[in-house]
């Protein structure tokens, strides 16, 4: 058992460096996660007193959104609805070549190797991705009933982990899926509906300001999203934005 793999890994010292691919051989076990396979590689590199490959990761449970990587051209690798940390080596073949690259978009500058700066996504949330309620102001949690289905749909949008795979998958480098998921998550709930107009206007404006591309309904984001956020979210955002523009005060 075990897999002998050839890795082509993007190495880039820092943002000013041009960057290049480096080849590595690594032995992996089928039950390893993809990141554990990289741990093995790094352990060997450190042993040889070389710089390990920098990549972001944290929870390794598919929820924190820190892990990224474009594996053989796909953000988070070959499995649908799976983050890189939840991808296991049993999905690769012995002798396979695996090309590992960072998430690419002009709004995600490379920090080092496979680590990119995704802070633009935070700034989109800061522009309006919240309900303006101070601590202590809230009425009883059951004071407004919310239809079960509506809450479920809201949850589906709220499941976004902010990893940025949608931006990386999009040939336009658009953050429409990320932004719209937040807008729909809050907009479907009565608590969030109140300020939807300003929210959508500000968030869309921020998305533009950051330099994200414009959605042209390709659907690569939806196809690669590890949390299966759908294009319905983007349509929702469009409706909300059109409504806010033409009916708002």
């Amino acid at each position: 058992m075990g897999l002998n793999l050839k890795l082509k890994v993007w190495r880039q010292k820092n943002n000013k460096d041009e960057g290049h691919f480096e080849d590595y051989q690594v032995k992996a076990d089928e039950d390893m996660s993809f990141l554990e396979m990289l741990d093995v590689l790094n352990e060997e590199l450190v042993h040889e007193k070389k710089e390990p490959v920098a990549f972001e990761h944290d929870c390794r449970e598919g929820i924190c959104g820190a892990c990224s990587l474009v594996i053989n051209g796909r953000p988070h690798g070959p499995n649908a609805a799976t983050t890189t940390c939840q991808l296991h080596m049993r999905h690769f073949k012995d002798g396979q070549t695996i090309v590992i690259e960072p998430f690419r978009a002009s709004t995600f500058p490379v920090i080092k190797d496979l680590v990119v700066d995704r802070s633009a996504l935070d700034r989109i949330i800061q522009a309006g991705g919240f309900v303006s309620v101070n601590t202590g102001q809230a009425p009883d949690g059951n004071s407004i009933p919310i239809e079960k289905n509506r809450a479920e749909h809201s949850f589906e949008s709220a499941a976004c982990i902010g990893c940025g795979a949608c931006v990386a998958a999009c040939p336009n480098g658009s953050a429409a899926l990320f932004t719209s998921a937040k807008i729909r998550h809050l907009g479907l709930l009565p608590q969030g509906k109140v300020e939807e107009g300003t929210r959508v206007a500000n968030m869309v404006a921020q998305m533009n300001k950051e330099g994200f591309g414009m959605c042209s309904n390709i659907g690569a984001c939806e196809a690669e999203c590890p949390k299966e956020i759908t294009l319905q979210n983007i349509a929702y955002m469009k409706r909300a934005y059109i409504k806010a523009t033409f009916s708002g005060e």
Partner: peptide, 13 residues
């Protein structure tokens, strides 16, 4: 719970 509901946390219903 009240605070989180007001923030838009989609709890199970």
């Amino acid at each position: 719970i009240d605070q989180c509901v007001a923030q838009g946390v989609p709890f199970a219903r």
